[in-house]
């Protein structure tokens, strides 16, 4: 039971990051590696906000705002100019942007190259569930994730902007011909997806009690595994895939120890799934 809770919490952090990435892939069909940079920025700003106020909730708002802003900037300054270019061009630009973000953040006058301690008290209780314990930090992760995913679902299914996102992701040109403000739909996808990345950064910072200039390195490719597993561009897919991966990792480690690095597990599952179901767990094969 304790393991299941650990997996659920771990999966939450995966999902928050992967969902935004999937939204962005869905709408622009670009491999947005710099998303992990946005995640680190969100974590760092959350850390600073927590340092000023001592509140993890202020940290969350700060991290999400910083995420939204930096994600939007990456789009406005970089991708928007590359929309007509072959797809490897934005990919290379994205990798470059990610490296620049990491290197900048690791400057001594920003995060430095060391882990920075963030022993935040979420002000939440420790909850017992069927003999297992949910620590206040884990509860924070779960509550934030559940609330944000719910809000995202409502936004997607019920709001004008959600309809525009879905329409633009489905067919950008047709969306334009149907009166959708494509430009605004893309920019807001970046802003919202990146706010989720910022939230992922802050929750991971609270859960691991630290932030780190290179904390985005592993998530930069792991989030992609989850997005591909979930069926590229889908939104529900990565949610399920993120939890599936977290449970698989936890199950393996609980029973066999660290027989192989955690991230190798992700890729192993990816290879297996791609062989069996090339469109991902939830993707629809489309001609």
């Amino acid at each position: 039971m304790q393991d299941a809770l650990t997996a659920l919490t771990l999966g939450s952090t995966y999902v928050l990051l992967a969902v935004g990435l999937s939204m962005i892939y869905g709408i622009l069909r670009i491999i947005h590696v710099a998303h992990a940079g946005v995640y680190t920025i969100g974590a760092y700003v959350g850390y600073l906000a927590w340092g000023q106020t001592g509140s993890v909730w202020v940290a969350l708002v700060g991290g999400m705002a910083a995420g939204a802003l930096s994600g939007w900037l990456i789009y406005a300054l970089m991708y928007r100019r590359l929309l007509e270019a072959p797809r490897y061009v934005p990919l290379i630009a994205s990798i470059g942007a990610f490296i620049v973000i990491q290197d900048l953040l690791s400057k001594p006058w920003l995060m430095g190259s060391d882990r920075l301690a963030m022993q935040a008290d979420p002000g939440l209780p420790s909850v017992g569930v069927l003999g297992a314990t949910v620590s206040p930090e884990a509860l924070y992760v779960l509550v934030v994730t559940a609330a944000l995913l719910l809000a995202l679902a409502v936004l997607f299914r019920r709001s004008d902007i959600g309809l525009q996102w879905r329409a633009t992701a489905s067919d950008r040109e047709l969306a334009g011909a149907s009166g959708v403000s494509v430009e605004r739909a893309i920019a807001s996808t970046f802003a919202v997806g990146s706010a989720l990345a910022g939230a992922a950064g802050v929750t991971v910072a609270v859960y691991t009690e630290s932030v780190f200039a290179f904390m985005g390195e592993v998530p930069s490719y792991k989030a992609f595994v989850i997005v591909v597993l979930g069926g590229l561009g889908a939104v529900l897919g990565p949610v399920v895939a993120g939890f599936v991966l977290a449970f698989a990792e936890t199950l393996l480690i609980a029973n066999a120890g660290f027989v192989l690095p955690r991230d190798a597990i992700a890729f192993l599952i990816l290879v297996i799934v791609l062989i069996v179901r090339p469109q991902g767990l939830f993707g629809r094969a489309r001609a």
């Binding site: 019920r158 709001s159 004008d160 902007i161 309809l163 525009q164 969306a175 009166g179 959708v180 605004r184």
Partner: peptide, 17 residues
């Protein structure tokens, strides 16, 4: 999608249902 177009370009209209 097409029916909502009048609201898409208004700032306050984005989060409307």
């Amino acid at each position: 999608v097409g029916l909502g177009r009048a609201r898409y370009y208004r700032l306050g209209g984005l989060l409307r249902r």
